[in-house]
Amino acid sequence: MSTPRTSSVVRALLEAQLRLELRTFESLPAMWLFSVTAFVLFHFGLNEDSLSGNLASGVLWVTLLLAAILVINRLYLADAEQGGFDGFLLSPADRGSLLIAKVLTLLFYLAAVELVAVPAFALLLLEPSLGQALPGLLGVLALGDLGIAVIGALVGALAIRTQSRDLLGPMLSLPLLVPVLLCVAGATAPLFDPAHAGAIPLRLLVTLALYDAVFGLIAFALFDFLLED
């Protein structure tokens, strides 16, 4: 027996997480359905056939954030209910490897949701063409997803140890995600404005990258304490 390498442990945990989702197919369909339904509700609620600029950006990102909350609440459910936490804690594996695996799992979920949600949004609500905005949008999505994944993995670990995890997850993650929302919505708005397509404010992207990095460090520092008794 040798000390397990962190990369090998992360790969094993991620593989198990994805297998669990592919076998049960519980989270992804819910996220897809939620996103598309939200767009339909916005379509009727705002009484607009198409949206652009700040409004379009806000609708897209609020929908993606709320869809992410669905999976953040379930991220550690199988571990908590089926003893996966204890199994992991009994091993000599580095505790941080579970955090990394959960961040990667959330990134996978978010990418899979966006594959459906972004085209659906373009089809149902977006006024300018998606094709023009897509290259810039992919960059904003990547940075935004990273922020959501890091915060979600940390908050999920905190909430799962409590009785009121269904409430605590959204109550903790939504306020922490406000700065992410400010940055991604601000960075996406020019992409959805037909007059200024492509001009992303770099300041917002740098702020978002810094927020992601700072939260990543905080998550890494706190994660051990969350798992220990």
Binding site: M1, T3, S8, A16, R19, L20, D86, G87, F88
Partner: peptide, 28 residues
């Protein structure tokens, strides 16, 4: 240490082999 408790500490949706391979990797 090896703990055999009330809970098997195994994922119900994974096979026996998949569960054990996961734990083998956790323990190196």
């Amino acid at each position: 240490i090896g703990l055999l408790g009330h809970e098997p500490m195994l994922y119900r949706e994974l096979t026996a082999r998949e569960n054990l391979r996961l734990h083998a990797k956790l323990h190196g």
